[in-house]
Amino acid sequence: MKKRSALFHINRKNVLLILGLTLSALILLITIFSPLLETHNPTKMNLPNKLKAPSSENYFGTDALGRDVYSRILEGSRVSLGTAFVVVIFSAILGTAIGLFSGFIGGRTDMVCMRIVDIFLAFPTIVFVLAMTTFLPTNQLSLILAICCINWVRYARIARGEAVIIRNVEYIEAATAIGNSKTGILFRYFLPNTVSKILIMMSMDIGSIILYCASLSFLGLGTQPPSPAWGTMINEGRDYIRNAPWISIAPGIAVAVTALSFNMIGDGLRDALDPRMRESIQTE
């Protein structure tokens, strides 16, 4: 689309975006090929070998049960990233559907839906998820479900805003008057615009969801030990922080780097498409 390409200039300003994309792609590759990259069995205990500092044998040392931290991080990457992606995609789909529906229908239904969104927004995310887990079994699926239940609202808001604009905009009628079909306008202008806004939101969301998942598994939710979720690993390492800090620090850095690379994409995208960043020409 001509409009879209005019917005996107690859130059020094996009360093962040390109860096983020590269790093994220690298992390994704590592995650996918993690079984091949693991040096030890992530769940196999090896007590004589416990609490060893990082070495050429164990890149990130071993934990209290003698398990190789490096391999556990790799194993955990699949859980962490997989969860984050699933959450983002599902909450995006759910939220967008509800938002579009609400915006298009308008009237009473719209008002009720938006009130419901307000109610969900009143809960801080972690508090909501904690409350939900009381009646859900403690496994990764519950965690995914709980986060989706609160995360859909941010997509609903955007989608509903777009739907309202589509409903109200005057030049649809004008364009119809000069011959363009209503569906044509819908597909050529509005849907791409809405889709791009949702996609940007998703890219910005992945980073925070990764952090939320790690925080929640740190608190003991989601998949249980011995399954190596990064947050759980960090929690397990707390007791050994004095003499074996690598048990917590290594997975912590994994979380930080992953979140960082996706945040770079989100930030970079937002900057690249932000009209404020472009130079303005004034000819009057």
Binding site: E279, S280, I281, Q282, T283, E284
Partner: peptide, 20 residues
């Protein structure tokens, strides 16, 4: 007419043109 550059002339006198 609109867009012919009149306001730019005014801004030039006032030295209020943008940085570029």
């Amino acid at each position: 007419e609109t867009g012919c550059g009149k306001s730019v002339t005014g801004s030039a006198v006032l030295r209020l043109l943008p940085d570029n």
